[in-house]
Design a protein around this nucleic acid. Structure first.
Length: 585
DNA sequence: GCCGTTTTCGGCCCGACTGTTTTCAGTCG
């Protein structure tokens, strides 16, 4: 199950979404029509993305207000919320062998083929499938053949290798290197990554690069011959597909000038967003494809993305919003947010140095920040409980403060803010006394141990401390590595909202915590957000752009983000609750 | 199964590619 995209939602939302997805898979396998199957999938997606706890909606009799949930699904959800069971789900799941439906995730093996293999050959699970490929029985089925069986085998191998989604930061580095090389080729015009990478999704499956060119075949050939390529999957006139180190797939598409915008729009997705746009186009008697937007047979746009959106009567929608999470409605109503941008960022609110487990000096971090155009940086080394990270003792922190004050003496138009990433101990108390914390510019409270011990209460206690500015990485998850803390995030958000405590978007590539959906939820709860790279090296300051990606996917504007304030405004915010509202500045 | 300033019934995004076929089904993005 791929939950990496959204992190931990309210538990029941996720459970119900998973159940509906499972039901969709089984119904599809059983030959149910595509529209019913899609209805289940759509409802699952919307419920997974939902801001509210579905239990609250159920209690308020509001289930049918969820887009994609009608009378039928509402009844099933309601049954589950009341009884912890869903009779239709149980009925459907019991009608197929356990293990069979999991095979649907295999590339090149769809529901029709799986049904055929199950009925004719009695395939029940992965081992049975492998045997049927080995001894040729699968290839002998009607409509099958050697090639198809071989492709399914390749799909199995890929899955067993665990070639999964890679973190956004890694994908960005890879794609930028690629684009840098491809740009040097002759007859290359516009060149952009599309797909989830352009939407700044936290993990990326395969990478799409779109090149505007009249020389498709030459470009594709040059691409598939690059030194990084470990295997060429396909190479044609308009599309080349390769694997690079780590079995990461990169596709290049050569596009005509007149279709570049529609191709970029199409391949950027998301699929759900595109389906919405096509539905609207259809209502207006138009048609959208990767080649353009058409009224009857006449092409009315496609050179740029703006032409597509304009033809549909809406402004261009930033890629980070294209998830069908309300952006189409907002665009039609003229209510799109003015998203925060990297150029709005005045500084970094969470960095480490050699004083604890970082690798650079305070001055090196500051100098790097200055080259990024920042006007401040907050030094937040670990506190003493984080012994594994060389956490500072009371005395060491005092010494560090002296060094920062001295460095600030020599700075013009730049301020090194004093701070600490202070541990929240297992009893909910902080690692430094209030007297010391009160002398810092920024106090970030964080949990680094006891992930299952009263986490919710401890985070709430930290938020209630008037000296705590920011709650660091509030869920504690590590992408593809570790589930988050055992935490009731809704209650923590309530506490942050009540006390004027900010929540962090930790921009470190393996965290991105809060994630996009939590971020949007926090914004709507009136909570201020702080982006911190958690940098341990001066190079790490660059991951601010990942944090900006999360912020934009969370619909944040400049006013929601502490990093967009001036140094003076930030220092005033030390006293919580006084200038808390977004409007003030 | 959902949904409605073209519909309470009849729609529901669109095209490419592959491999199997001899006109098309299945899968993918």
């Amino acid at each position: 199950m791929d939950n990496a995209d959204s992190g931990e939602q309210p538990a029941k939302n996720r459970v119900i979404a998973d159940m509906f997805n499972r039901m969709a898979d089984i119904l599809e396998f059983q030959g149910e029509g595509p529209f019913k199957v899609n209805a289940y999938r759509k409802a699952a997606r919307v419920i997974k993305d939902l801001q509210e706890n579905i239990e609250s909606l159920g209690q308020a009799n509001q289930l049918k207000s969820i887009p994609g949930v009608g009378a039928g699904l509402a009844k099933k959800i309601d049954e589950f919320l009341r009884t912890e069971r869903m009779s239709k789900y149980e009925e459907i799941v019991q009608s197929v062998p356990t293990g069979l439906i999991d095979l649907l995730g295999i590339h090149n093996l769809g529901p029709k083929t799986l049904a055929l293999a199950h009925e004719r050959l009695g395939i029940q699970d992965l081992n049975g499938l492998k045997r049927a490929i080995d001894d040729g029985r699968l290839a002998n089925l009607p409509g099958m053949g050697e090639k198809k069986a071989e492709n399914i085998l390749k799909g199995i191998e890929l899955r067993e290798k665990g070639a999964g989604r890679i973190p956004l930061g890694q994908a960005l580095a890879l794609v930028e290197d690629m684009i840098h090389r491809l740009r040097k080729l002759p007859s290359v015009g516009r060149i952009y990554p599309a797909g989830s990478i352009r939407r700044m999704q936290e993990t990326v499956g395969d990478i799409d690069i779109l090149i505007e060119t009249e020389e498709g075949e030459t470009i594709v050939k040059a691409f598939t011959s690059l030194p990084q390529v470990t295997r060429v999957l396909s190479s044609g006139k308009t599309k080349g597909s390769v694997l690079v180190e780590g079995d990461i797939q990169i596709d290049v598409r050569a596009i005509d000038r007149d279709s570049y915008g529609s191709a970029l729009q199409y391949f950027t997705g998301s699929q759900a967003h595109n389906i919405r746009l096509r539905g609207i186009a259809k209502q207006k008697g138009m048609k959208i494809s990767e080649y353009g937007i058409f009224r009857r047979e006449e092409k009315i746009g496609g050179g740029t993305e703006e032409e597509i959106y304009e033809a549909l009567g809406m402004p261009w929608i930033p890629p980070e919003l294209r998830e069908d999470r309300g952006e189409v409605e907002a665009a039609l109503e003229g209510n799109l947010p003015e998203l925060v941008d990297l150029v709005d960022i005045n500084g970094d609110l969470h960095v480490h140095t050699r004083w604890s487990d970082g690798e650079a000096t305070i001055d090196e971090m500051a100098q790097k920040a200055i080259t990024l155009g920042y006007s401040f940086i907050a030094i937040c080394d670990h506190s003493r409980s984080a012994a594994y990270a060389g956490g500072l003792t009371h005395e060491r922190l005092e010494e560090q403060l002296d060094e920062i004050h001295a460095l600030n003496e020599g700075m013009e138009n730049f301020r090194i803010l004093t701070g600490s990433e202070v541990d929240i101990r297992s009893d909910g108390s902080l690692d430094f006394p209030d007297e010391l914390l009160s002398r810092l510019d920024i106090v970030i409270a964080a949990i680094h141990s006891g992930f299952k011990q009263n986490v919710t209460q401890r985070l709430i206690a930290a938020a209630q401390n008037p000296l705590v500015t920011i709650i660091a990485h509030p869920t504690g998850r590590l992408i593809n590595q570790r589930e988050g803390y055992d935490v009731d995030l809704e209650r923590v958000m309530q506490a942050c909202s009540d006390t004027g405590t900010a929540m962090e978007i930790n921009a470190c590539g393996e965290r991105l915590d809060l994630n996009d959906i939590h971020t949007r939820h926090a914004k709507e709860a009136g909570i201020r957000l702080a982006i911190g790279t958690d940098a341990h090296h001066s190079e790490d300051l660059a991951s601010m752009r990942l944090g900006i990606g999360v912020a934009r996917r969370g619909w944040l504007e400049k006013k929601h983000v502490m990093n967009c304030r001036t140094t003076e405004e930030l220092l005033k915010m030390k006293t919580k609750g006084t200038d808390f509202k977004y409007g003030d500045s």
